[in-house]
Simulated scan of single mutants.
Amino acid sequence: MSTLGIVIVAVCLIVTTVNLILTAVLFRQLGLMVMGSARGADDSGISIGRKLPALDLIDARTGADVDVHGLRRPQLVFFGSTTCHECAEIYPDIRYLEDHYDLRVVNFLFGSDLADVVSYAGARGVKGPVVVATEGLASAYDVDVSPFAFVVDERGLIVSKGLLNSRGRLIDMLAPVQRVEFDKEAVRENVA
């Protein structure tokens, strides 16, 4: 192979590598942890207007049963990961909502094990039930990405769903069940 051919192959490999790195960085910046799907983030999840499946769920911290049906009040069902920076960034806003609004948050957290999930939840000040997320649970809820959330109304129906990686997105998702405003003092905490 000629020197020119070797240079062309080398340039192609470098361009391909840079493209892959930039694509990975872009997905990370968007807060996406793709779990094996080519669908768009907001296409994940059980359809709006349906109920979440009735599954046997256990709170990892208390051992109590977790029911996502029949509560007669709005719920945010949040799928996050202990390794997801965007998930950690949204928790101060979720805690604010729990403190100031009649909203129950059920947290499904992917982690390396039970201790990892419980430790992460404690460090983030998670108040609602914490369920250790598994591939089986993600499949049952048809969730392919995190941070992802469902908003369930007082009838138990999904009224919104999608990628949840910003305060603005959280406000928009909750609009069908609760008008939400953040105080000027509700500043984001450092989650680094």
Rank of each mutant, 00 (worst) to 15 (best):
Ser2Asp: 15
Ser2Pro: 02
Thr3Gln: 11
Leu4Asp: 08
Gly5Leu: 13
Ile6Lys: 13
Ala10Met: 08
Cys12Val: 14
Leu13Thr: 10
Thr16Cys: 14
Thr17Phe: 10
Thr17Ser: 09
Val18Lys: 06
Asn19His: 09
Asn19Leu: 10
Leu20His: 12
Leu26Arg: 11
Arg28Ala: 14
Arg28Glu: 14
Gly31Leu: 08
Leu32Pro: 07
Val34Lys: 08
Met35Ala: 14
Met35His: 09
Ala38Tyr: 03
Asp42Tyr: 05
Gly45Gln: 03
Ser47Ile: 08
Ile48Trp: 05
Ile48Cys: 03
Ile48Ser: 02
Gly49Ile: 02
Arg50Tyr: 06
Lys51Tyr: 07
Leu52Asn: 09
Leu52Met: 08
Leu52Gln: 07
Pro53Tyr: 06
Pro53Val: 09
Asp56Val: 15
Gly63Pro: 00
Gly63Phe: 01
Ala64Trp: 03
Asp65Trp: 03
Asp67Met: 11
Val68His: 02
Val68Gly: 07
His69Trp: 06
Leu71Ile: 06
Leu71Pro: 04
Arg72Glu: 12
Pro74Glu: 04
Val77Ser: 00
Val77Glu: 01
Gly80Phe: 03
Ser81Arg: 06
Ala88Glu: 14
Tyr91Ala: 00
Pro92Gln: 05
Ile94Ser: 00
Arg95Tyr: 08
Arg95Trp: 07
His100Met: 01
Asp102Glu: 14
Leu109Val: 14
Gly111Tyr: 09
Leu114Ser: 13
Leu114Val: 11
Asp116Lys: 13
Val118Met: 10
Ser119Phe: 04
Tyr120Gln: 01
Gly122Asn: 13
Ala123Tyr: 06
Ala123Arg: 14
Ala123Thr: 11
Arg124Tyr: 12
Val126Trp: 01
Val130Ile: 14
Val130Phe: 09
Val132Arg: 11
Glu135Gln: 13
Glu135Ala: 12
Gly136Leu: 12
Gly136Ser: 14
Tyr141Asn: 10
Tyr141Asp: 08
Tyr141Leu: 14
Ser146Ile: 05
Pro147Thr: 05
Phe148Gln: 06
Val151Glu: 07
Val152Trp: 05
Leu163Tyr: 04
Leu164Asn: 03
Ser166Ile: 11
Arg167Leu: 04
Leu170Met: 10
Ile171Lys: 15
Ile171Asp: 02
Pro176Leu: 00
Val177Ala: 01
Arg179Cys: 08
Ala186Asn: 07
Val187Gln: 13
Glu189Thr: 10
